[in-house]
């Protein structure tokens, strides 16, 4: 793994910007595929394709709402297929279905593609920049605690992203979480569970908005966990580069040899 002194790196392992750290890393194609199935866009966000991932999540919420996918899912799992059929909006389901399948397929393909490029980037071993001061933000590649990242995103999706310095994604997730909580009425329903009983509580809930929440919550937890793990491995990778570069010219054992001669010499004398 020697770094060559070509003027332009062919493949970079990672870059740092005020938006966060963007990196190539080995990722499991099936896990990425699953997250796209759970929520279109999440797979791409996990692959660090943040712009398209974010736009896909917007697509998902809008198309799902127009086509009534979540409501139909609730009826289907509840064994009322007839109700589900009535609820689905034929104007939108074709487009939704194709879009949904595409994001799943594309995530799988992209993961395999990035895994190859990651391997090549590691072998190329281009020096990583790990410290960024800009006028409005500070971003430093540091060791992170994956459990802390997961914990904060579990308490409030987005906080784990902020902990990992993925600034705008964290704020985006926070905004959506407040929105989901408000429109699913999940907190009033929890309160009603104790005060008025289960039937009243269930009546308060909006199935459509509630059904987004498990994917968003666990998606945020998983993203913050995975990014913390990946930042840690990138931190080691970068520090290894640094140490190799800075302490390459060690004379510790060169001195040893000289000293050996000295002792040998003194033995003769």
């Amino acid at each position: 793994m020697k770094s060559h002194s070509s003027p332009l790196p062919r493949r970079e392992k990672a870059i740092i910007s005020w938006l966060g750290i963007t990196q190539m890393q080995y990722r499991n194609p099936l896990l990425m595929l699953w997250w796209s199935a759970a929520f279109p866009g999440f797979g791409h966000i996990l692959l660090n394709q943040y712009w398209r991932g974010t736009l896909f999540t917007l697509f998902e919420v809008v198309l799902n709402s127009l086509a009534n996918i979540n409501g139909a899912m609730v009826h289907s799992f509840g064994g009322k297929a007839e109700l589900a059929k009535q609820l689905l909006n034929p104007h939108w389901i074709y487009g939704y279905l194709i879009f949904y399948l595409y994001t799943i397929w594309d995530t799988y393909k992209k993961t395999r593609e990035f895994n190859m490029h990651n391997e090549l980037a590691v072998l190329e071993n281009t020096r990583i920049k790990s410290f960024l001061l800009s006028s409005g933000e500070i971003n430093i590649l540091e060791r992170r605690n994956p459990a802390a990242a997961a914990f904060w995103s579990f308490m409030l999706p987005g906080l784990g992203q902020l902990y990992n310095n993925r600034v705008m994604l964290g704020i985006y997730a926070l905004l959506w979480w407040f929105f989901y909580c408000r429109f699913s009425h999940v907190f009033t329903a929890c309160y009603a569970l104790f005060e008025q009983g289960i039937v009243q509580s269930t009546r308060l809930l909006s199935a459509h908005w509630l059904l987004f929440m498990p994917s968003v919550l666990w998606g945020a937890v998983y993203h913050s966990y995975l990014m913390a793990v990946e930042h840690n491995s990138l931190f080691k990778y970068e520090q290894k580069q640094f140490l190799k570069e800075r302490y390459a010219g060690s004379e510790i054992f060169a001195l040893e040899e000289n000293r050996g001669d000295e002792i040998a010499g003194s033995g003769i004398v």
Binding site: A38, G78, G79, A207, L210, L211, S215, W218, Y222, Y225
Partner: peptide, 17 residues
């Protein structure tokens, strides 16, 4: 995390009935 999401969605859906 993946399995929690999958079963969570199904559990909520079935929970309505």
């Amino acid at each position: 995390f993946a399995a929690a999401t999958a079963l969570g969605v199904v559990g909520i859906s079935i929970g309505f009935v």
